[in-house]
């Protein structure tokens, strides 16, 4: 059933592919975190953008990521921009999770007491300074664990990139499987790898949560 020699033979190949998965996760998450912040800020800053952005967020959140990946990968060429599979995949991951992250940021901003805004106005701070120095430093720390959860969720979605033939973990496992007719070891290893990574990152998130809760109350 389980061939240890074969397991050790494919391990280096899978390890190399794991690097691609992790790269996609990090790039995707940086995009998601920044774009999500921009969406959340636009929603607050200008009343006329609030409605279109909330419809956009709802749209992105209620359609499957896989379809969005296909959409970006196949639609961009028809506008004359050809994206390679990795870029299209990272873009799709980033945009999809930006929609989720923007809701998290929004919750963070909603938790800032009104008095903070009013005090900033009283101090004659510009809206930009208010956001940069008053609101964001208070709003971000409490939502770090929630963002961390989305980082893990995004990581677990990277196997979808195999559908547009990005050579990440799942795609590599599938190729090994189709070349050797042995699926048991590669796919089980991929599963174990994700399980290990999720358990480790869950520990980190819990630690971050504890650290943030220890901060003196405002």
């Amino acid at each position: 059933m389980w061939d240890w020699a074969f397991t050790f033979e494919i391990l280096p190949t899978l390890a190399k592919a794991a690097v691609i998965s992790i790269e996609a996760t990090l790039f995707g998450f940086v995009l998601a975190a920044t774009l999500g912040l921009v969406l959340a800020l636009l929603r607050i800053a200008f009343p006329w953008t609030a409605w279109p952005i909330s419809v956009l967020v709802e749209l992105i959140r209620s359609t499957p990521l896989l379809i969005q990946i296909f959409f970006l990968y196949f639609v961009f060429p028809s506008f004359g921009v050809t994206l390679d599979a990795f870029t299209a995949g990272v873009l799709a991951l980033g945009i999809h999770y930006a929609a989720y992250c923007s809701e998290v940021y929004r919750a963070g901003f909603d938790n800032i007491p009104r008095g903070q805004w009013e005090a900033s106005i009283a101090l004659n701070l510009s809206p930009w300074t208010t956001f940069r120095d008053i609101i964001i430093p208070q709003a971000i720390p409490p939502i770090v664990p929630a963002l961390g959860n989305y980082l893990v969720a995004l990581f677990k979605e990277t196997p979808l990139l195999s559908a547009i033939a990005v050579l990440e973990l799942m795609q590599t496992a599938k190729i090994i499987g189709s070349e050797t007719f042995r699926y048991t070891e590669p796919i089980t290893l991929v599963g174990l790898f994700f399980l290990a990574m999720s358990l480790v990152s869950a520990t980190f998130i819990r630690a971050a949560e504890r650290l943030l809760n220890r901060r003196p109350a405002r």
């Binding site: 059933m1 677990k156 979605e157 990277t158 196997p159 979808l160 195999s162 799942m170 496992a173 599938k174 499987g177 699926y183 048991t184 796919i187 089980t188 991929v190 599963g191 994700f194 399980l195 999720s198 358990l199």
Partner: peptide, 23 residues
């Protein structure tokens, strides 16, 4: 709970589809 929350849905589907028949 830990196994199914800790791995991706696609990996689980592939496991059921490709690996389970081997058993």
């Amino acid at each position: 709970i830990e196994i199914f929350r800790g791995t991706s849905a696609l990996v689980q589907l592939f496991w059921l589809f490709f690996v389970l028949p081997q058993f």
